[in-house]
């Protein structure tokens, strides 16, 4: 911040700063902090035992299990394709590159409900492949495969979006150096590229995971809401809430809120790590000290 003498030039008057801080922080309090607190307060409305009871309900446990399973299943695809897309886009020049970047963003722009409907139209009973799937007794919609497919769709952009700017900023020099020193493609990737992008990759995975576990609209359309079978935790929250089981709904919601908090902490830690590494690269250089080649010394 600027010092006392330049305060008038580059800062607001004291009263205005106070007003802006009250308005800004007040807004955050009412819109973000209060809802977060409310989740936990509502969850414990019926006391600790009711909370534990709600969480230990078999349907809740099965919803947690399904949510975790879908996320664990989906993330490897996100990582592999995200890294591949970022590699092609960040390190090479080709025609249609900016179109490809735009298309990667497409899943963010489409409403989750539309995403669910799209897959219903393809794999549903009246859909394009519906009759064929029914004849071969393959269930995709209103079953786990459909839920996995929409989650793949929804989470596709996260990893690539984090990695593309990072890898573009890092340039190609280190990889080219590795190749010129004789490294094979995989040696270059695992020894040079991956260590350089690990934090960015983790960041993308954290965001994709939060979305995969929390997705509601798209999964809701293709799940069929079969209790104990195709119910993820967010869908379970909805069911309990609509049944006026507030404690049950908020107990499940508190698990998801906890997930959100873990996500925020992990995100902050990773951001901090990334910032630290960039700062390290910009640190003032040590004083120069050029010696003589050893051979010229007596």
């Amino acid at each position: 911040m600027s010092g006392q003498t330049t305060r008038l030039a580059t800062a607001e008057p004291r009263w205005l700063r106070a007003v802006l801080m009250v308005v800004g922080l007040g807004f955050l309090f009412f819109f973000l902090a209060l809802p977060l607190v409310a989740v936990f307060v509502e969850a414990f409305q019926g006391g600790m035992s009711a909370y534990v009871e709600a969480l230990r309900h078999p349907e809740t446990l099965s919803a947690i299990g399904l949510t975790v399973f879908i996320a664990v299943f989906v993330l490897p695809f996100n990582i592999a394709v995200g890294v591949a897309a970022a590699w092609a886009i960040a390190k090479f020049d080709f025609r249609g590159k900016s179109l490809l970047i735009t298309l990667i963003d497409l899943p963010f722009a489409v409403s989750p409900v539309v995403v669910g409907l799209v897959f219903l139209l393809i794999f549903g009973a009246q859909g394009l492949f519906g009759p064929w799937l029914a004849a071969h007794d393959v269930k995709i919609v209103f079953a786990l495969p459909g839920m996995i497919i929409v989650t793949l769709f929804i989470t596709f952009p996260f990893v690539a979006r984090e990695l593309i700017p990072l890898m573009q900023a890092q340039g190609k020099d280190e990889e080219e150096a590795a190749i010129s020193l004789g490294a094979s493609a995989w040696q270059m990737f695992f020894r040079v590229t991956l260590p350089n992008i690990k934090w960015g990759l983790l960041y993308g995975v954290i965001l994709a995971n939060a979305r995969a576990m929390g997705e509601f609209g798209a999964v809701s359309v293709v799940s069929g809401h079969i209790r104990g079978e195709t119910n993820t935790l967010p869908l379970h929250v909805e069911i309990l809430y609509n049944e006026y089981n507030a404690v049950g709904a908020f107990a499940s919601a508190s698990v998801l809120a906890l997930l959100a908090l873990v996500t925020l902490v992990a995100k902050t830690v990773v951001e901090w790590q990334m910032r630290r590494e960039t700062v390290m690269l910009d640190t003032p250089l040590a004083p120069e000290n050029v010696g003589q080649p050893s051979g010229t010394q007596p």
């Binding site: 973000l32 977060l36 509502e42 939060a210 935790l233 919601a253 998801l256």
Partner: peptide, 22 residues
């Protein structure tokens, strides 16, 4: 600053029932 990202991290259904209750 970290809290600003809460809407990205909090599942929408949770936000929905919480705001409705509040």
């Amino acid at each position: 600053d970290s809290l600003v990202d809460l809407p990205f991290a909090l599942p929408t259904a949770v936000a929905g029932i919480t705001l409705a209750t509040l």
